[in-house]
Each structure stands twice: as C-alpha cells, then as structure tokens.
Amino acid sequence: MILPIYAYGQPVLKKEAEDIQPDYPGLTELIENMWETMYFAEGVGLAAPQIGRSIRIFMVDTAQVEREDSEEEGIKKVFINAHKVEEGGNPWPYEEGCLSIPDVRGEVERPAQIRLRYMDENFEEHEEVFTGFNARVIQHEYDHIDGILFTEHLKPIKRRLVRRKLDSIKKGKIKVDYKMKFPR
C-alpha cells in the first residue's frame, strides 16, 4: 500500500526516532509498504519519519541508479535500529533533494564514508562501511531518523533562497505526483 509522505513542517520529521523490537506490530507489512511508497515517489531512500512513524527504520536502493562511470555497486537494504559508528574521508559536495521537501534541491557536503551498526529486516546485526554515493544516501536517510533535514546542511545563503519554497510546502501549496500529508 502506498503511504502518504509527510511534508516539511510536520513535527515527526524533527524528532529523534526510537529503536524498535523484533515484535514491532506489522513490521513486515510496514517494510513492504515503505518500499512501494518509495518506488512510487521515485526515491532512492525513505525513512520511517517520512511516513509519520518516529522509529529507526530506513531503506535505500541505489542499485536502481547505478552509474556506468562508477566503480561502486549500488545497494538495496533495509536498516533497522541503525546507529552511526563513525564517519570519515574527505567531505564532498553533491546536490540533494528529499521526498518530504519536493522541488527543493541544494548542495550538501558529506563525509565520503560511514560505518554503521544496524539490523536487517530479519533482525540480524551488521556492522558495515559504506562509501561514495551509497554513503551519501545512507547519511541522508540516517539524518531523518535523527530528526535532521538536508536543508539544515545547506549554506546560509542557499537556506535563505529556499525559505519561501519551504513555507509553501508547509502550507500545502505544492504539486507532486505522490500522496503527501501536510501540517495543519
């Protein structure tokens, strides 16, 4: 089932999400619905706060956008109860966007790699290092479960330039091809 994506201004997007237990009600269905929602909205990642749940789950599918000029393989993974172990490498800029903040894009600098401890959908624990584009998408989604939006990483002048667009999104004055839930 395709779920509505919570728009900029929704309080759940600014909350630090909670870890869950393996017996979390409807977890398998939730994960399936999140995949369906992400693909319908043409995203490469989706975090539970973006569908109104303040829990530490996000998913990433960079395999769908693998570039021929890249040596890096894409990934398709579910991350549950993810916690950052460390970030490192030279920060590099890349233009990011977000399903919760449609029509707003901006250059964000992020470290080249991240080491993450997480559970997969079977609650098996992993600790893994991700680099390049995979690391970037993971860091973006990880920020969501910590209540941080990519716009907070923009340079001050860019933040001022997008302020009007952000206000429009908050008010629901935006047209998208997927369901959204706006603040009241």
Rank of each mutant, 00 (worst) to 15 (best):
V104R: 02
W35A: 03
F182E: 12
V162E: 08
D120V: 11
W92K: 07
P25F: 03
V85L: 14
E95S: 06
S100L: 07
T37P: 14
S54M: 03
D23W: 00
E72D: 10
A48N: 03
K173T: 07
K84A: 07
H126R: 11
V129S: 01
I20K: 00
E125K: 13
I169G: 03
G26I: 13
F182N: 08
Q113N: 07
L3W: 09
E42N: 10
I101P: 03
A47M: 01
R136T: 08
L149C: 04
I57D: 14
S54Y: 06
E36I: 12
V65T: 09
G89C: 04
R53T: 07
N33R: 06
E68K: 06
G9S: 13
E152H: 13
H153Y: 14
R67I: 08
I101S: 01
K14R: 15
Q21E: 12
D19K: 04
G26R: 06
K14L: 11
H153A: 06
G9Q: 14
L3Q: 10
K158W: 13
V85T: 13
F133S: 10
N90Y: 05
D167K: 12
P11I: 02
H144S: 00
P25V: 05
G45C: 12
I20G: 00
Q113D: 06
D167P: 07
E71G: 07
F58Q: 02
A82P: 00
K76Q: 14
I157T: 12
K165N: 11
K14G: 02
I169E: 06
S54T: 05
Y24W: 09
S70N: 06
G74W: 13
R115K: 02
Q50F: 02
M119S: 13
K179E: 15
G88E: 10
A47F: 00
P49T: 02
F130G: 09
R160Y: 11
I51T: 08
F150W: 14
F79I: 12
A135T: 09
A63Q: 11
